[in-house]
Structures are given as structure tokens and as C-alpha cells.
Amino acid sequence: MIDAILSTIDRGQRFLVAAHGNPDGDALASTMALANALLEMGKEVVAYNQDGMSAELAFLPGASMVVDSLEANESFDAGFILDSGELRRAGSHLKDHCKSLVNIDHHPHSENFGSIYYVDESACATGALIYRILKKAGHSLSLPVATCIYTAILTDTGSFRYSNANPEAFEIASELVSLGVSPWDVSANIYENRPEKQLRLLTAALKTMIISDCGRLGAVSVTEQMLAETGTGPEHTDGLINYPRSIQGVKVALLFRQTDKDCFKVGFRSKGEVNVGDLARQLGGGGHHNAAGATLNGDLTSIQDMVFSRLQNLLP
């Protein structure tokens, strides 16, 4: 598959690089890693995300080039869709702008769209796949590209704490640091550069925390009213789920985020004993064994009761 990707790059001149909406660190950092590398190869590149570049990742080299819309007549020789699982998560309309699509992902059950399907569930992050592609191409990793790849791996492995922090993750990170990437600078930008309003939202969210009677499920919630009162947006909810997850005895943590009057996005984080990816897919969503999500309709209490019941049946 990598050879086919390199052939696509060689033949084309104008490329689209996109990732899923409501993007996490891997999605945006992988986008910027590939976009910067293609520019260095002399290609024309448009980096796209339907929700734009998040403020906490605006330090990434080239972040200002990310756009959240495309002109109706824009055309690309190929579109690289990263970390998306399904094309609709990045934008189904993107196929209308591209002569071909390349799916690069590490999510299980990733949709087989496009002409090239490069999916490896064993990869720690999509950023690791971008690294493999660039190494096979013989492309010398510049500091901007290295910084983006390091950020992708750092964020998707939970600062090398999650089970996907495999040997390859550390091997790549070691090489990138040797090329000049500063772990301190990257970590400080991600974890020590939060706006005050995000901490106000955290305060409100923690007041909603509930723990199941068995002590193995924990959850926090964010409503539209909470976002409005704190002047925050969906991007400021990133990391909230880690608070119930950090509680002793909790095996699965959840974040319920309201997106409409009777609609909530549910994020799942497992410590390994429960496959939340399977449950999320049953609920119409998707994700990994330990990290997944789904969108559910109904009032918050009913959704929480249903999800907790489903999870309790999965607990060992």
C-alpha cells in the first residue's frame, strides 16, 4: 500500500489532506505532518478540517494553512483522508473534489473507501503511518514534520501511557527527538497552555460526575448551557473524560456532551477489560478497544441509564 501511495504522490501535483471533524491531536498533527512534507516535495497542498484548527494545537508548524471549507470548483489529484474510520467523519463531499481518495488510518473496522486503503490497527497513531510513508519515500524529516509526527504519537498514546504505546511509538519518538523535537515544548503547548474558560468548564463538568454503584463506571457530562455559560466550545471538552477515568476502581469512563436539544455525543475510555469499540459500533459509532464514541438521541438521564446498563453487562 505504501508503494501505491508513493506512486500517487509522484503522479500528482495538487493534493487535499483531511481528517475527521472534532479533531484530536493525532488527526490534526498527522494532517500537518503530511501537508508539510508534501509542500517540501514541491506539491500544492490544501489542509482541510471541517472544524478547523484547534487553539491548543495552533503551535503546530503550518497550522495557519488549515481551512474549514472548500470552493465548489476546487479539484485535487488525490485526497488523503486521515484517522477518520469513515469518510463521512471527514466529509462525504470530499470525494467530489478528488480524482482519487487514499484512506490512511489505524482504527479497527475502518471503512474501505477510496482507491487506496492503508489501515494498520497495530499502529500507535495515524502519525506513525505518515512516518512510515515518508521514510519509505526517502524523504528527510524536517523539524516541522518531525514535530507534527511526535505530537500525533504523544497525544494518541496519552503521553505514552496507553496500551498503544508500543515499541514502534518509542522508536519513532526517539528518532524525532534526535532530530531536534523538544518534548518539553510540545508537552507545554498541549498541556500547559489552556485558556481559563476551559478550567471553568472543567469545574462545571466535575459537578456532574456520577459513579456506578459497583464503582467501575464513571462519567461526566457537558450541556449546551454549560458551554454557553463558560464561553467554551466542543474543543474545550478534550481531556475531561480522563478525570473519571483516573478514579481508583473505575474500569470505563464516559463523557456525555450535548450537541442538540435531545442529542448527545458519548465518549468511552476503557482501561482494557471492556471493549468499548464493540459497544460503540453497536450504538452506531466506532473506535478502538479502549477509546470509542457514538452519538445518541434522547434525554441525558435516559441515555446514561441505557449506556450504564449496557456496560455493566460487559464488565467481567
Rank of each mutant, 00 (worst) to 15 (best):
T8E: 06
R14E: 03
A19N: 06
P23S: 06
D24G: 04
M32E: 07
L34A: 04
E44K: 15
E44T: 15
A47E: 00
A47M: 02
Q50K: 10
G52R: 12
S54W: 03
L57K: 01
L70Q: 04
A72P: 12
D77G: 14
I81Q: 03
I81P: 02
I81N: 03
I81S: 04
D83R: 05
D96Q: 14
H107I: 11
S110Q: 09
S110W: 13
E111A: 09
E111Q: 12
N112K: 10
F113L: 08
S115E: 15
I116Y: 07
L129H: 01
I133H: 02
L134H: 07
S140E: 14
P144L: 09
I149R: 03
I149M: 07
L154F: 15
Y162T: 01
F170H: 11
A173Y: 09
A173M: 08
L176D: 03
S178Y: 13
L179V: 06
I190L: 15
Y191D: 06
T203E: 12
T203W: 10
A205F: 00
T208W: 01
S212P: 03
S212M: 06
G218M: 00
E224F: 03
H236K: 10
T237M: 10
D238Q: 14
G239C: 12
Y243H: 15
R245T: 08
R245E: 09
Q248I: 10
G249W: 01
V252W: 14
L254K: 10
G272R: 05
V274G: 01
R281K: 10
L283F: 05
H288A: 00
A292K: 00
D305C: 14
R310S: 10
L311W: 04
Q312Y: 06
Q312M: 15
N313Y: 09
